[in-house]
Amino acid sequence: MNEMNSSAGLVPLTRGIPPIETIPSAALADCARELLAKDAGRLFQYAALGGNKGDALLREQLGRQHSCDPEGIFVGNGSLQVLDLLCAELRPNGDFEVVVESPTYDRALGIFRRHGATLLGVPVQPDGMDIEQLEALLTRHRPTLIYTIADFQNPSGVTLSTAKRHRLLALAREHDMIVVEDLPYRALRYHGRSPPSLADLADGARVIGLCSLSKTLSPGLRIGYAMTDAATARSLAHRAENTYLCASPLCQGIAARALSQGLMDVSLAQTRQTLAARHDAAWRVAHRLLGDALMARPDGGYFMSALLPCAFSETQLITRASDRGVALTPGSHFFPPDRVPAQHFFLRIPFQSLGADRLALALEAVVDATGA
Score class of each variant (00 low, 15 high):
Y302Q: 05
H287F: 11
G301S: 04
L275D: 07
L259V: 04
A269C: 12
A296Q: 07
L308K: 08
A321R: 06
A311F: 07
Q261M: 12
L289M: 02
Q316L: 11
L263T: 04
R284G: 13
W283P: 04
A282Q: 01
L328I: 07
S305E: 03
P309M: 11
T329A: 11
A311N: 12
G291K: 10
R288S: 14
A296E: 11
P309L: 12
I318N: 04
L275I: 07
V266L: 13
C310L: 09
Q261A: 12
A293R: 10
A276S: 14
G331S: 09
S267M: 02
T315Y: 04
G291C: 05
D265H: 14
A306W: 04
H287Q: 15
H287E: 15
R288E: 15
L259A: 05
A277C: 06
S332W: 09
G301I: 05
R297L: 08
L268S: 02
R297M: 12
P309T: 10
V326C: 06
D292Q: 13
A282V: 04
L317S: 06
D280L: 10
M295W: 00
G325R: 04
G262P: 08
L308G: 07
A293Y: 09
S332T: 11
T274Y: 12
M264Y: 03
T271W: 07
A306G: 03
R284I: 07
T329R: 12
D299Q: 14
G291D: 12
L290M: 05
W283V: 02
D292L: 09
A296D: 09
D265M: 13
S332C: 13
L268F: 00
L308I: 09
G325M: 06
D280K: 10
G301W: 02
M304H: 07
A321G: 07
V326P: 01
R324L: 13
P330T: 03
L259G: 03
S260A: 15
P298Y: 09
A296Y: 02
A281V: 02
L317Y: 06
L317P: 09
D292S: 14
T271Q: 10
L259T: 04
G291V: 05
G291I: 01
T319N: 12
R278C: 05
L268P: 01
Y302G: 03
G331E: 09
D299N: 14
Q270A: 15
T329D: 11
M295H: 11
Y302F: 15
